[in-house]
Computed example of a mutant assay.
Amino acid sequence: MGTSIPARHHSAPPRQADDTAQPAIVFKDAAIRRGDHLIWSHGDFTIPQGSVTAIVGTNGAGKTTMLKAELGLLAIAHGSVTVLGEPAGKANQRIGYVPQSYTSDIDSNLTAEQSVLLGLTGTKFGFHITSRAQRQQAREAMDFVGVADKANYRLSQLSGGLRQRVAIAQALVSNPQLLMLDEPLANLDLASQRATVHVLARLNHELGMTIQIVAHDLNMLLPILTGAVYLLDGHPHYAAMNKVLDAELLTHLYGTTVQVVTTPQGDMFVTPTPDEPAGMNQDTHAPDEVARFHHHAGEQHRQ
């Protein structure tokens, strides 16, 4: 990892995806089946390098399936998927992956440092001799995500938010070009969610890393997202966030009334419920206005 991890954080404007560079991910009429069941089909889109992209859809729509297809863990039934210029599965050495089940799959007796080193040694069992350089890489990754002071703590001693940052450090330690995370904010409290999003923002702003996030709720991620893949009616689509932040689209996507709003807390869409007071006047904005609000949020905060 070496000098690629900055020693300290410097404020930076939101990074814009590079549409002129080689695309990070390309789907060409891709389809996935499990047995006789068609999960989704007609995936035909391009995700640019330097982007932060959410994968959204209802439960069972195939969000995690899409990540597995990109990693070559599931065969494409039709079409093709190209990741970092190579067929799916061929560029995995340049991809960092944080599974949703990380905290339950990994041995909780491991220390944070031992867990991060697994990103280099690739083994979970037995003793593995590590070099001084590898341990230095692990320390740099932990320092970047803010858990260096927890290096000797066992995972069982850490909160869910800290374990999630250890998981990101493990994915980061090999210096990937693309980071994939499956529901990284699930079951975290508000402070831990914000800390995790801050780490992802730094990875994108400072290292130019392309990030893809399976997400159920977009609210916390909206300030860093540049686009989204949304699984709708059995087909995946990709669009920039100013196109995705549309009340009609989100209502169709989630199967319940969704209204795009702005609040002082930065929430960008909510799901109204029958419990709302009658005649409540919500501060509703058009999708392009919402996108502009988020694009400049960092500058407004610094000012």
Rank of each mutant, 00 (worst) to 15 (best):
T3K: 08
P13C: 12
D19I: 12
T20Y: 07
V26Q: 04
F27G: 00
F27Q: 01
F27R: 03
D29G: 12
D36C: 07
G43Q: 01
Q49N: 08
G50C: 13
S51H: 10
V52T: 14
T53P: 05
I55G: 04
G57V: 04
G62F: 05
K63W: 05
T64D: 03
K68H: 15
A77I: 10
A77E: 11
V83I: 15
L84H: 00
A88R: 00
G89T: 13
I95A: 01
S104I: 11
D107V: 02
L110D: 03
T111R: 04
S115Q: 06
T121K: 14
G122F: 12
F127I: 04
T130E: 05
T130V: 15
T130Y: 10
T130I: 04
A133E: 15
R139Q: 08
M142R: 10
M142A: 10
F144S: 02
G146W: 10
G146M: 10
S156R: 07
Q157F: 06
Q157D: 11
S159G: 05
G161T: 03
A167R: 04
A171D: 00
L172G: 00
L172C: 01
N175C: 06
N175S: 15
Q177L: 11
M180D: 00
L188D: 00
D189Q: 06
D189A: 13
A191Q: 10
V199E: 00
R202I: 02
L207R: 14
G208S: 08
Q212V: 15
I213Q: 01
M220N: 07
L221D: 02
P223V: 11
L225I: 09
G227T: 06
A228E: 07
H235V: 13
Y238A: 06
A240K: 14
A240F: 03
N242D: 15
N242Q: 11
L245M: 13
L249E: 10
Y254N: 09
T256A: 13
T256S: 10
V258W: 06
Q259T: 11
V260M: 03
T262G: 05
F269A: 13
F269L: 14
F269K: 00
V270P: 01
T271F: 14
D275H: 08
G279W: 08
D283P: 03
H294N: 03
Q300F: 07
